[in-house]
């Protein structure tokens, strides 16, 4: 009986295992191996073991700089916009409307980000926002193909992902705590800073990490709204793999990107753990 069960399990797992081996583990291993290799004169890969590709990383410094500035700024902007909305949905909205309003936040995230992003070409282009600004006296303002346009695009694209975890955290908030604080004479801002904000912190951290990680790998939004002037590491990868066909160097860039992401996740996990530990102390008191 136990034998047939084990065999049955193995049979059920085999297709998935093969899929992961062939199209996840093999490709990731190839990227790692190529990143230590050399480039042939016609592009592509020649075997070797050199750190030259990694030494060459500063050549793409601008892409890393843009990514490492706009990803945190975009995450912060999304957080500041998402938090009040999540609070509104979790605390202020009646049960009847809650689900509908929540679904309305999530739905855009699951529709084509390509189409949603290019809509901003209209909104930020000559006849959109700049025309509106011109009508109130600010003339000749160009928004498209600027860091601002990319920032708007990424905040717009990833806002739903930020709202959801914060909402989940705030949903669990016991409103009686706020009432008690008010009864004890705390002004609203104080009960927010001392009760609501700390209790919603897990959601804030999860949302921020999710958005930050996804922003680090972004290339579509800068490609559409950055007009070739504002480019991310993702855009450098497109160039290295599809245009200049410098696979070894492109692999090194990709490995560097993944390493930065892993470091971020590691820091996040530690912060969350320490935070959870701190919470327990408070609970014990």
């Amino acid at each position: 009986m136990a034998m047939t069960q084990t065999r049955g399990r193995a049979l059920l797992l085999t297709p998935a295992a093969l899929w992961y081996a062939a199209l996840l583990l093999l490709p990731l291993a190839v990227v790692l191996i190529f990143s230590f290799g050399e480039r042939t004169p016609i592009g592509g890969y020649a075997p070797g073991f050199t750190l030259a590709q990694y030494a060459n990383l500063p050549a793409r410094m601008a892409a890393f700089r843009n990514t490492l500035t706009l990803a945190p700024v975009g995450t912060l902007a999304a957080l500041l916009i998402a938090y009040p909305l999540a609070y509104f949905l979790a605390v202020r909205v009646s049960v009847r409307w809650k689900t509908l309003l929540l679904v309305l936040v999530i739905v855009p995230f699951w529709t084509s980000i390509l189409i949603r992003s290019y809509a901003w070409i209209f909104l930020l282009g000559g006849k959109g926002l700049p025309a509106l600004l011109a009508s109130i006296g600010f003339e000749d303002i160009r928004l498209l193909n600027s860091p601002f346009a990319v920032l708007v695009g990424i905040v717009y694209g990833y806002l739903p992902l930020m709202v959801f975890p914060i909402y989940v955290a705030l949903e669990k908030l016991d409103l009686r705590l706020l009432e008690a604080a008010a009864d004890l004479g705390a002004p609203p801002w104080r009960s927010f800073v001392q009760i609501t904000l700390p209790l919603s912190m897990p959601g804030v951290l999860t949302g921020s990490m999710l958005v930050f990680i996804l922003l680090m790998g972004e290339f579509l939004i800068p490609a559409i709204l950055g007009g070739g002037k504002v480019f991310f590491v993702g855009n450098a990868l497109v160039d290295l793999f599809l245009q200049s066909r410098n696979w070894p160097f492109g692999s090194a860039v990709a490995v560097a990107l993944v390493v930065i992401m892993l470091i971020t996740v590691a820091i996040y996990t530690r912060v969350v753990k320490r935070y959870a530990a701190g919470r327990d102390d408070v609970a014990m008191m």
């Binding site: 992961y20 996840l24 990227v31 680090m216 492109g250 993944v258 992401m261």
Partner: peptide, 21 residues
Amino acid sequence: LVQIAVMIPGIVIGIATLIAL
């Protein structure tokens, strides 16, 4: 494996699959 497949950015999956295949 499931976690890696969900978390890794699409662009890395894209280039890795391209050069491996």
